[in-house]
Write a protein that binds this DNA or RNA. Structure first.
Length: 801
DNA sequence: TCTCTCGACTCAGAAACTTTTAG
DNA sequence: CCTAAAAGTTTCTGAGTCGAGAG
């Protein structure tokens, strides 16, 4: 790879290596196009060096994003107080928190149980049956509420129990722990052979496989109706690996498996489906019992003791064997991922800690006591020889610390970013090709939030990032648009056509000259060289810091811009504003998801619903015409109205009304039947049939009237014009809301918000925003996020990124 | 020096599972 | 109120980034 890479870069490399005469390959066309190109080399480099120095002493105070500490005025005190009552937790105040929280917790949890049984005696008059039902319901409701409250209490307790590392002064970071105890890893249960009647078929004959080869066959059978089974690479990798297993574990009924096409895995697939259905059919209680049992077995593995504190372990379950599911065009997808055994695993544990015993036969590969790393166990996976680790959970102190450090580093960039931008803007015109390329790459990383883009091997999917972009990935569209179209991380397509600065456009044009589609755009830049340069500009700065910085600063800015709208907003409105900002960041970072399978369908549903609302609105308008046509004319523009509702024609109305009528008739009948059932159960006489008949007749008459109104532009009024106006108003709002919901939903169908929320948005932005706008943070952060970000929860409402 | 490889960590979307909402 | 579907959350594990050290 490296060799090939070098070989393809001839023209540009010559240009640069020539150093003094670097110019020579460039020429001609563009020389006259950009005059600024001939700044002498010395001049181009010198100011940069000066600038660099200046940067290291952070004397530069003139950055733009200045809205720091005092920017936002305190939000209304009143609100803060009034909503504080339910969470006594949070207003414990910063000072006494440490001691008091723990104690308070205990007390609360103790005296919380007794106050439950209170509803017991209720008037026993009226209908005893009804009374019973009512009682039961109330109890259930109480129960639910109690559970909810308990859950919240528990959560708060857990929160109170976390080690408040962010209040300590942090020191040396190279040592990650002093003592470390843990239970090792949890191996999945051994393979259980299929029941004897479940067999795959080869060339029309059932195959009697021994467990080892049957297991691998089952891995594939389970995927029969997924995309994987349609993939040639996947199939051939699977088949090759399975044949190897079959070599040592051949069918017991001496069938020779040779051709993939002759394999029929369907019976096994069907068996799996049945098992799945059985599992799904279990009652809630049964499922719960199973889960409890599992949790009990796993409990010892779920926590470790680090420096004397109990903390959660992340992925202590060893990955079960299966078929490797690489993303995109991964050449190894479908390969057999073998069962991991104790012999594969190295444990990292404290010197004085007891060595755990594996939960399956075998001995650990090795035991080490390296406290400069954070992992508890590691092994090398057989498909790509990649290292796998067991780490602590996201909410642990170790992870929390580095997470916070990441955001602090990104915030530090605020103080440098202006200078850095200035520098690379100058370097965009550098005579030194390497510098010019680097500056251009930095421009993309900064403006477009591209990833660094390391080199990749032959045995991986062909994806790229900034530094590894190839000519085929960027298309120039004069005067200044660059079209990016490439597969990035996880083979997710990045497509964007930003207008760029003229110099950047020119540069890319130069970089692409005399190269083939498959040649790198930046042949003189590597992620290592780029990061080295960035580190010179700011200690600890790397390409990925820009992504964090840009995501968070964008988010903060967007939220700040919406501040006005938030003043009197309802909760859903606030939520919408927050999510809109979140979405914009996700788009910047190109975080995608597969559109939900049911998306189109649910869009159609919404559209239909809105049309129904518009029908209702039309009827109301027609009522108004009948009641007070002057008022109507005053309020509505006939043209507009007809325009928007042009799809509501008489045919559609007829269909719709027929449908409505049918539904209503059915509803009435159902209700009648149900009422009678109930009465029968209560020993009462059934309602007379004519009750129903009258009702049905009424409905029919109503719809007959509607049918008559069709096309007249008028409708029978109910109530006065005033009332109709009010109803109309409400309906308008409802329609607008539904429409906006629909368009938001559609816009967001392929955008994944979660990735940025978890990894890129400084949680303190959210916490401060929630405090300032009187929103419960738990509405914006799921439980896991809450436990992931304990360090962010105490910022003031005016905190800014 | 510079490049290459290894190791350890963050970040990524899909799948599985759970809770909420709609009908 | 009950069920089914949708929405939301958590788990899973693959795919990146990037520093360090060897050659």
């Amino acid at each position: 790879m490296p060799g090939a890479h070098e070989a393809t870069t001839v023209p540009a490399s010559k240009a640069v290596n020539g150093n003094g005469k670097a110019k020579k390959s460039k020429p001609t066309v563009k020389a006259e196009a950009d005059d600024d190109d001939d700044i002498p080399l010395a001049a181009a480099t010198k100011p940069k060096r000066v600038a660099k120095k200046a940067k290291i002493e952070p004397e530069s105070d003139e950055e733009v994003p200045k809205p720091k500490r005092k920017a936002a005025p305190r939000k209304s005190k009143v609100k803060e107080e009034s909503d504080a009552d339910h969470d006594s937790e949070e207003d414990g105040g910063p000072k006494k928190r440490k001691r008091s929280t723990k104690r308070a917790k205990k007390e609360e949890s103790e005296d919380e149980v007794p106050d439950v049984p209170k509803k017991k005696r209720v008037k026993k008059e009226e209908d005893p049956e009804k009374e019973k039902i009512r009682l039961r319901k109330e109890k259930e409701k109480e129960e639910r509420e109690r559970k909810k409250a308990e859950k919240i209490k528990k959560e708060e307790e857990e929160a109170a129990a976390v080690f408040r590392w962010w209040e300590q002064d942090k020191k040396d970071n190279s040592q990650k722990w002093t003592t470390l105890e843990h239970q090792g890893v949890y191996f999945p249960p051994p393979y259980e052979p299929l029941p004897p009647n479940v067999k795959m078929i080869y060339d029309g004959k059932t195959v009697d496989l021994p467990p080892d080869s049957e297991e691998v066959m089952g891995f594939y059978a389970a995927l029969l109706e997924t995309e994987h089974a349609q993939d040639e690479t996947f199939n051939s990798n699977f088949f090759a690996d399975w044949l190897k297993v079959l070599g040592t574990h051949p069918p017991r009924n001496s069938i020779k498996i040779k051709a993939f096409d002759k394999c029929d895995f369907r019976p096994v697939f069907q068996y799996f489906e049945e098992e799945k259905a059985k599992k799904k059919a279990l009652t809630t209680a049964e499922k719960k019992a199973l889960k409890e049992e599992r949790d009990k077995i796993e409990a010892p593995y779920a926590f470790c003791i680090i420096d004397g504190r109990k903390e959660k372990v992340g992925n202590f379950r060893i990955e079960p064997p299966g078929l490797f599911r690489g993303r995109g065009e991964h050449p190894r997808k479908g390969a057999l991922k073998q069962r991991v055994r104790p012999e594969d695993i190295t444990l990292n544990i404290g010197k004085d800690s007891a060595i755990p015993k594996p939960n399956m036969p075998g001995k650990w590969k090795a035991i080490q006591h390296d406290n400069t790393v954070t992992w508890l166990a590691n092994w090398i996976e057989n498909v790509n020889q990649s290292h796998k680790y067991v780490f602590l959970a996201a909410g642990s102190s170790l992870k929390g610390q580095s997470d916070m450090a990441k955001f602090e580093k990104a915030r530090e960039l605020k103080d440098y970013v202006d200078q850095i931008r200035e520098d690379y803007t100058v370097e965009l015109k550098s005579k030194v090709m390497a510098e010019r390329q680097r500056a251009t790459a930095m421009y993309f990383i900064d403006k477009l939030a591209l990833r660094a883009g390391n080199e990749k091997g032959e045995d991986e999917a062909d994806t790229v990032g900034c530094c590894s972009l190839r000519c085929e990935h960027v298309t120039l569209e004069p005067p200044n648009v660059i079209i990016f179209d490439f597969l990035g991380k996880d083979s997710i397509r990045y497509y964007n056509n930003p207008a760029v600065e003229g110099q950047v456009f020119k540069n890319v044009k130069i970089f692409k000259e005399n190269k083939d589609e498959g040649d790198p755009v930046f042949d003189r830049v590597t992620t290592a060289s780029l990061n080295k340069h960035l580190n010179n500009q700011m200690k600890g700065l790397t390409a990925k810091v820009f992504r964090t910085y840009n995501a968070s600063i964008t988010f903060q800015t967007l939220l700040d811009e919406q501040q006005e709208k938030l003043k009197n907003a309802t909760f859903p409105e606030k939520m919408a504003i927050y999510n809109a900002a979140n979405r914009q960041v996700a788009i910047l970072c190109n975080h995608q998801r597969a559109a939900p399978k049911t998306h189109d369908q649910s869009m159609e549903k919404m559209r239909f619903k809105i049309k129904g609302l518009r029908y209702d609105r039309m009827k109301l308008r027609h009522q108004l015409v009948a009641l007070d046509s002057k008022q109507y004319k005053k309020r509505f523009d006939k043209e507009d109205e007809e325009d928007e509702d042009s799809d509501i024609d008489d045919d559609w109305i007829e269909d719709y009304e027929t449908q409505l009528e049918k539904v209503e008739l059915e509803k009435a009948m159902k209700k009648f039947a149900k009422d009678n059932e109930k009465r029968a159960a209560d020993g009462q006489e059934a309602l007379p049939q004519e009750d129903l008949d009258t009702k049905l007749e009424g409905i029919k008459t109503h719809f007959a009237e509607l049918a008559k109104e069709r096309g007249t532009g008028k409708a029978k009024g109910r109530g006065d014009a005033e009332k109709v106006m009010t109803a109309l108003q409400k309906l308008e709002e409802k329609i607008a809301l539904q429409k906006s919901n629909m368009s938001e939903k559609d816009k967001g169908k392929e955008v994944a918000l979660s990735t940025s929320k978890i990894n890129y948005l400084d949680p303190r932005i959210t916490v401060a925003w929630c405090k300032a706008n009187d929103v419960d943070v738990r509405k914006m952060f799921s439980k896991t996020l809450m436990t992931k970000f304990p360090w962010a929860m105490e910022v003031e409402d005016d905190w800014k990124f």
